[in-house]
């Protein structure tokens, strides 16, 4: 077993990490395509800032803060892994999941108040983009929450799958960064 490991040509790289990075590269292109389409359409139409004024910047700002905090707790979860602290790992994973759910909750509140005010995906091109982009992002958040929840359950059995926390963290930060792009583009356009 050890001999096999010792003789590999590229042993010092964790396969999972390489895989996640490639996956994220294609995710960048997915959101890049959406954001690029949005920007091109934005340049071609006037009056979008008027539409965007109907969005609540304070609520979204709070949501941004929530997501940023969740990135911090994710880092702390990985820190707990490195320190060999299963209790800390569970706590921080749980906090991350909770913050993710808070983000989705606030997002749902935003959606419902916007729909109530008569702004649905079919109201106009701006709103189509708004709902599609934030919706796709929310799905990514949801996927991250499920992953973290799975890790949380696994963490009850100790620290066996420690490297996975790092991988989930990479993904979670990516989702966070996407939001950092979406927030000014959509709300402050």
């Amino acid at each position: 077993m050890e001999t096999t490991a010792a003789t590999r040509a590229g042993t010092d790289i964790l396969p999972g990490k390489v895989g996640v990075w490639w996956f994220l590269a294609s995710e960048v292109m997915l959101f890049g395509g959406l954001i690029g389409s949005f920007i091109v359409s934005r340049l071609g139409s006037s009056g979008w800032s008027g539409e965007a004024a109907h969005l609540s910047v304070p609520v979204a700002a709070i949501n941004t803060l929530v997501l940023l905090t969740s990135s911090m707790t994710m880092v702390m979860a990985f820190g707990a892994v490195e320190k060999g602290d299963p209790r800390g790992l569970r706590t921080y994973l749980f906090l991350t999941v909770l913050l993710g759910l808070t983000f989705l909750g606030i997002k749902a509140y935003e959606y419902s108040s916007e729909v109530a005010a008569g702004f649905t995906p079919v109201t106009g091109l701006f709103w189509s983009f708004y709902y599609t982009m934030t919706g796709l992002h929310a799905l990514h958040v949801l996927a991250g929450i499920i992953t973290n929840l799975a890790l949380f359950v696994m963490a009850r059995r100790g620290l066996r799958n420690q490297h996975r926390v790092e991988l989930a963290g990479l993904y979670w930060h990516f989702v966070d960064i996407v939001w950092i792009f979406l927030f000014p583009l959509l709300y402050l356009t």
């Binding site: 294609s26 995710e27 960048v28 292109m29 997915l30 959101f31 890049g32 395509g33 959406l34 690029g36 389409s37 995906p121 079919v122 091109l125 189509s128 983009f129 709902y131 599609t132 796709l136």
Partner: peptide, 22 residues
């Protein structure tokens, strides 16, 4: 290269199902 097309496919499906006008 597939990311932008997935984005496009999402928009196309939205146009067909949700009634958007991308």
């Amino acid at each position: 290269s597939v990311g932008p097309l997935i984005a496009g496919a999402v928009m196309l499906l939205m146009d067909r199902i949700a009634g958007t006008s991308f």
